[in-house]
Design a protein around this nucleic acid. Structure first.
Length: 235
DNA sequence: GTCCAGGGCCGTT
DNA sequence: AACGGCCATGGA
């Protein structure tokens, strides 16, 4: 029996509930739109192939030195920026990526991110992908979690979980993404989709961290009765 | 000490 | 188009 994205959503949702994701502190919610968006964007860059706990330290450092906004990052020295984000790893390239991106927003949108997200999704995505250091997952995370626009984020967890489950998914990023979106659009209205994509990706990350690890911990996984890998491994 | 994490780029086949 | 090496820290 195949598993559809809709079924996957329902199984995970009945276990994990609604997560309304992007891990941030309380103070974050008091910020105005553009600064909130920017904080998510910085997190999306810093978390590339990196544990979130290491990203949190970096964001805290940036915040404590008051360089967590477009203007400050564009002005701060590259060496200081590298030092502040050191804990997030790959700090040389990530510092450069933040500088580039910030400069881009400043030059093209006067630092107004609300304006940046007013275009249609494809235009935003193409623009993000043209920037150095922003690939598909980072672009889509930014669109979904900073832009609050409907796009499904595919990551290493999503690919791994899809491979282990009996699903009709191909291997490439765009194929998995369009399959999930096509299916979920059948079951949910346009207004609901942002929430659904937000929550589904969040739940997939939780599942990937706690159960469907590279070396899997199948005990207690809500997908056990559907999973090829679980059956084959006979745990 | 070894493995791994919410990728992406670049050079080689 | 697909693959491998590389980037780097901190926690398990």
């Amino acid at each position: 029996m195949k598993i559809t994205p809709q079924t996957l959503y329902q199984i995970l949702n009945s276990r994990f509930g609604s997560l309304d994701w992007w891990p941030m502190d309380k103070e974050y919610h008091t910020k105005k739109g553009s600064d909130q968006r920017f904080e998510v964007i910085v997190g999306a860059i810093l978390t590339q192939n990196t544990a979130w706990s290491n990203v949190e330290k970096a964001i805290f450092s940036l915040k404590s030195q008051k360089v967590l906004d477009i203007d400050s990052i564009s002005k701060v020295g590259i060496k200081k920026l590298q030092k502040l984000i050191k804990s997030s790893g790959f700090f040389n390239q990530k510092a450069e990526r933040l500088k580039n991106l910030t400069l881009y927003f400043k030059q093209n949108y006067q630092g107004d991110l609300d304006h940046f997200f007013e275009k249609d999704i494809n235009a935003i995505r193409t623009e993000l992908l043209s920037l150095n250091g922003i690939g598909p997952e980072t672009a889509d995370s930014i669109i979904l979690y900073a832009g609050n626009l409907p796009i499904f984020v595919v990551d290493a967890y999503t690919k791994r979980i899809c491979e282990r489950l009996p699903m009709d998914t191909k291997i490439s990023y765009e194929e998995i993404q369009s399959y999930f979106e096509k299916e979920l659009e059948k079951s949910y209205s346009k207004d609901e989709l942002v929430k659904i994509y937000n929550n589904l990706h969040a739940m997939i990350v939780i599942l990937g961290k706690n159960y469907c690890k590279k070396s899997p911990k199948c005990k207690g996984c809500p997908l056990n009765k559907y999973c090829n890998y679980y059956k084959n491994s006979n745990q």
